[in-house]
Design a protein around this nucleic acid. Structure first.
Lengths: 200, 200
DNA sequence: CGTTGAATTCAACAGTCGATGACTTAAGGA
DNA sequence: TCCTTAAGTCATCGACTGTTGAATTCAACG
């Protein structure tokens, strides 16, 4: 927070315009695909100005990746009501956010970039581990909390990937309610049900 | 089939060496990240030779993406035994293939490239739809077969993404048996259990 | 031997990228 | 008025890209 201090919504300042253009470009094309020239063009400024404000391309990337919402403020809303129905709450929140955010969201940029950029993958891994994993693991009241959280992450990553990035027709056409009803129970089981793991 | 006619294993011919290097490069860096010069270097040839054999970079990409196994020959092995235990069979097969294939496999290349390259995304979508989706959908003996198959795809995509591409520690450390026991039932439910969808 | 034809290399073109440094413009304070 | 400082532009550098056409090697054939 206290970030992007000026205007809450669009921001007409030059620096904010650059950041917005950067977010859009990184989200669409990933780190490598996005170009400083393209970002500057979309922001209506000279490419040199981007360097003037943010230094290197990598620094611009991390500046643009500042999340528009605070994970530590949305997580409690999911965890606090308790483990009952938590699976469906997770799916509904994620689908709601992504359906409304379009593609211009830092998560898409991070995911796309993390597929080919080792540094972006590390950023994503560390963020996911520190800001999300740790809190979820603590809330789990069962054995193997890390494995359970990992499986939840895998299902959520797959949902996002197939619906919003790869755009598989079957997943794009599904309604939010259908996804909640279909995938919610999976997360619920990952988080609370006995696992029946191989003896070891 | 009838492809890469020469040697079944490594192939020492120059063209095969180029294809191998191309697969490795595309798998590691995606379509944009991989360079013809880098591929030629790894294959020990001049960059111009790559063009001589395969034309453009895009043609080299599709040539390198010829799958090392035939989906229509491995799918029956999963579907034929019937729906009983099909969830666990799917997970075990996927994990086995990917654990042994390392990163040098066309699927990784397609997935990585599809995240940022629209053309690669279309390739992947069409392949998945035609070679896998269609057959699985036919085998399902329940309502909403497309949605069910889509959810299976989402969980499998997420498993592959978190374990092999993003390398989330919790998913990397899990043993194949643990993944089969944990995720198998999810697929089983997606494919066979009543869905309890919202009335619509 | 000379010749053919394929396999392969060399050198270069045209383009794009990130980045740099010098330059201009405008504003504000003393 | 002079100075300082930030905002912004311009031209350019060096590196790397995909691609091309001419030149070269080299084995096989007659």
């Amino acid at each position: 927070m206290a970030r992007t201090g000026r205007r809450p919504g669009g921001g007409s300042g030059t620096q904010e315009a650059i950041l917005d253009a950067a977010r859009a470009a990184f989200s669409e094309s990933g780190y490598d695909g996005a170009t400083i020239r393209g970002i500057a063009g979309k922001a209506g400024v000279d490419p040199a100005l981007v360097h003037h404000y943010y230094g290197t391309k990598e620094q611009l990337f991390v500046a643009a990746m500042e999340l528009p919402f605070d994970p530590s403020s949305v997580l409690p809303a999911i965890l606090e009501p308790g483990l009952d129905g938590i699976g469906e709450r997770i799916v509904r929140l994620m689908v709601t956010i992504w359906d409304s955010a379009g593609d211009y969201n830092p998560f898409a940029a991070l995911l796309r970039s993390a597929m080919t950029q080792e540094k972006a993958a590390t950023m994503f891994r560390e963020f996911a581990t520190r800001a999300i994993f740790a809190n979820v693991v603590k809330a789990i009241d069962a054995d193997r909390p890390e494995l359970r959280t990992g499986m939840v992450a895998s299902q959520m990553a797959g949902l996002i990937m197939t619906r919003y990035l790869l755009k598989l027709p079957a997943m794009v056409q599904a309604t939010p309610d259908e996804l909640v009803a279909g995938i919610g129970p999976t997360l619920q089981r990952y988080l609370t049900a006995p696992l029946d793991l191989p003896s070891g």
